[in-house]
Nucleic acid binder design. Sequence first.
DNA 1: ACCTGAACACCGTTCAAGT
DNA 2: ACCTGAACACCGTTCAAGT
Lengths: 213, 213
Amino acid sequence: MVERSAKRRDLTLDKVVEAALAILRTEDEAALTMRRVARDLGVTPMALYHHLPDKDALLNAAVDQVFLDAARAAAPQEMDWRDELSWFMSEVRDPLVASPGIGQVFVRQPVLGPGTALTTERMFRLLRAGGVTGDALAEAVDSITLLTIGSIANEISRPAEVRLQLPGFLEAPEVLPDHIDTYARRDGRARYLQALTWLMDGIETKAGISPNG
Amino acid sequence: MVERSAKRRDLTLDKVVEAALAILRTEDEAALTMRRVARDLGVTPMALYHHLPDKDALLNAAVDQVFLDAARAAAPQEMDWRDELSWFMSEVRDPLVASPGIGQVFVRQPVLGPGTALTTERMFRLLRAGGVTGDALAEAVDSITLLTIGSIANEISRPAEVRLQLPGFLEAPEVLPDHIDTYARRDGRARYLQALTWLMDGIETKAGISPNG
DNA sequence: ACCTGAACACCGTTCAAGT
DNA sequence: ACCTGAACACCGTTCAAGT
């Protein structure tokens, strides 16, 4: 990570973004400071500002890159559109959960660029291929987006121990204690895919489209 | 807000939490600093640490209070369980969206206390009353929780202008441009309730419970 | 026990200066 | 044009001291 470049004209936007990603992939968002990125690149903090307007722009560029990689992934085989949607959404969600720093940024601030644009376009294409049309198409993509953001936020910030403590705060618990183990069990990816399945079942039923579009 | 208390033994945990909430209700999360809370209370920053271990604890207490208010709200009239669930989840979601500072904290860090515990318990009771049983009960509550977190995160951090810019990043857009107006339209609450309806439709269908359980 | 004051180890970013 | 160095206006929190 620590490259002693330091010569003039050696620094590029790509290098700065890569250095930021390297930090976010292994450490907390708090570890990503402009001073730290500069140090890893062997440069003064202010050198970064010649390639980027501010820290937000750096975070945006780094996280969008992760979306671009996911959005370009090719499906491993021929699939039913519902299966392909589940596969694709995992492809998007997994890297954000695997690198907490990246997920933290995504949850906190808007990410706008080729990566998020292509990801959105691909979600639209998959659902349209499934027979979702009209306003329901944009609304379905919106629903899936909300669920995905929530799943990432929840998995990153809420370890199982948090939920396990919930019953202790209740004066007259009735239902929670019996179900807290199931509720707190950490299985974020499976839970997300199940919720996605339920959501798609609801969309198919009410939008009046035939299963297997 | 600026009360010149400053006398000894005047400061209490409740006052500190109230001062924090007052800031979060009208300003960004960034506005909530320990120094600012202390200033609003007419006290030294270090005085706060005699009532709280650290800033996270203060944020947790403040946001949990918002959940407690929502969890204690009484339904305005007799309702179908599905309608009551929609009403209750709005009761939870709306204050977090209306006060960006509060929503920002909730999305970023776990909130644990009487408020979140009672909110969760009440979600369990409503779904059980609807006939959802076994593991599906905890899984359904989990799904709704994810959707709710995502809806709050999305509404707080992503204004409509962000989505409207997406097509501009595509080299060969096919579907997005035709649907971007619908996709970007700001109608967060209705979108959330629709996604919740779709989710519940899917849960009812696949969990094999009768409508109006 | 409760609060103050000074200090530590940080931040992002502006500004003026170097080459 | 590209980078450095010093400085500004902040942070959360520790530590020692007052009453």
